[in-house]
Computed example of a mutant assay.
Amino acid sequence: MTPSFPSITFPNHWTLATGLYPEAHGIVANEFYDPALKEEYIHKNATISADPKWWGGEPIWITSKTQGKRSAVIMWPGSNVPIHGISSDYYVPYIRTTTAMEKMDTVLSWLDLPLEVRPQSINVYIQQIDQKGHGGGPDGKQLNSVLTMTDNAIGRLMVGLAERNIDRHVHIVVVSDHGMAASDKSRLIFYDEFISSESEAFLREREAWPLLGLRPKEDAPDYALDKIYKEIYDYTQRVDNPHFKLYRREEVPERFHYNSTERIAPILLIPDVGYAIIRSTDFDINSGKDYHPMGIHGYDNMAYEMRAIFAAKGPKIDELYLPNTVVKPFCNVEIYRFLTKLLDLDPAPNNATLNGAFEIL
């Protein structure tokens, strides 16, 4: 499965839940600035990120609830935000240390509820793979253990469904929001080496890591944007390979679906896979220390390393596909429509084009 661009956590979790590209639902990065609101979105600041004004579209748990099917969510990014003034029927807030097994036990406890209060749509986010991927890279020592842990947790869920005699009536859909690429200090780009100190003084805080989103301050002179762009462009002409692509927002290629909102910075640098764009003051390359994070995502969503996963089983799927069928790669905007089809729901407006059906490879 191909993630949406940028291949970063919050934009893609909200795309999976709503079927909208980030430029359409508004969560265009983990951190960005909205010039209309004159406010900054910071995903880790719950006071800011829990405000519904940032979140466009309708997630699957709200579509489900508004059409008479109870919904439950465990730690899915954005699930703490009321949409249209509505929240899921059951909700577990994000706690970093909660294990995948504990989450599956919660799911099974919900399925043990009486039928009249049992949720029919359940979303679960397991964060440990992303955590360990950032910490030690995609080939780090700890990643296999958390992959095994996650696999065992899904196995526990499937055994629990069978023990309850409902395994033939439940659909299970397993996805990831993005992939992960290795990075190290040999792949660092220091942007203060080609953006002048005068130009830096014109800029707000960077946006959309690991992209470099550049936005002049409101009091910057009219020529600031062109000056900054020219400095970066001139650098790309001086070096053999700058290891990034430079765009004005309106020039971002259409395949990225990433140019239709001013929440996207007016100048965007997209680094090559595995590269990080930082200031020289952020890391001493001669320190002898490893650069962190050792695993990074957020790059070109079509890159091999950024690809996500998709696996599904259940009664309606069995009607359409033979066991072990492999489907052609598709964009993750299709997942929301697929879920509404499984749940017999009318979808909210979305960017899907496959109508909930996938082509066989």
Rank of each mutant, 00 (worst) to 15 (best):
Thr2Ile: 07
Ser4Pro: 02
Thr9Phe: 01
Trp14Cys: 01
Tyr21Met: 03
His25Asp: 00
Asn45Ser: 14
Ile48Ala: 03
Pro59Tyr: 02
Ile60Leu: 15
Ile62Asp: 05
Thr66His: 00
Arg70Glu: 04
Pro77Asp: 07
Tyr91Trp: 12
Ile95Trp: 07
Thr97Leu: 05
Ala100Cys: 03
Ala100Asn: 09
Met101Leu: 14
Asn123Val: 14
Asn123Phe: 08
Asp151Ile: 08
Asn152Val: 04
Gly155Asp: 02
Met158Lys: 12
Leu161Trp: 03
Ala162Gln: 11
Glu163Ala: 12
Asn165Lys: 13
Val170Ser: 00
Val170Met: 08
His171Arg: 01
Ile172Pro: 06
Val174Ser: 00
Ser176Trp: 00
Met180Trp: 05
Phe190Thr: 04
Tyr191Pro: 03
Ser196His: 04
Ser196Lys: 02
Glu198Ala: 14
Arg206Asn: 03
Glu207Gln: 13
Glu207Arg: 07
Lys217Asn: 13
Asp219Met: 02
Asp222Trp: 12
Tyr229Asp: 00
Glu231Gln: 15
Asp234Tyr: 11
Thr236Tyr: 13
His243Thr: 09
Lys245Ser: 15
Leu246Met: 09
Leu246Thr: 10
Arg248Asp: 04
Glu250Ser: 14
Pro266Leu: 06
Ile267Gly: 04
Leu268Asp: 01
Pro271Leu: 09
Val273Ser: 05
Ala276Met: 12
Ala276His: 06
Ile277Glu: 06
Lys289Cys: 04
Asp290Leu: 13
His292Val: 15
His297Glu: 09
Arg307Ile: 08
Ala308Ile: 03
Pro323Lys: 15
Pro323Glu: 14
Thr325Arg: 08
Phe330Trp: 12
Leu343Lys: 07
Phe358Ala: 02
Ile360Phe: 09
Ile360Pro: 08
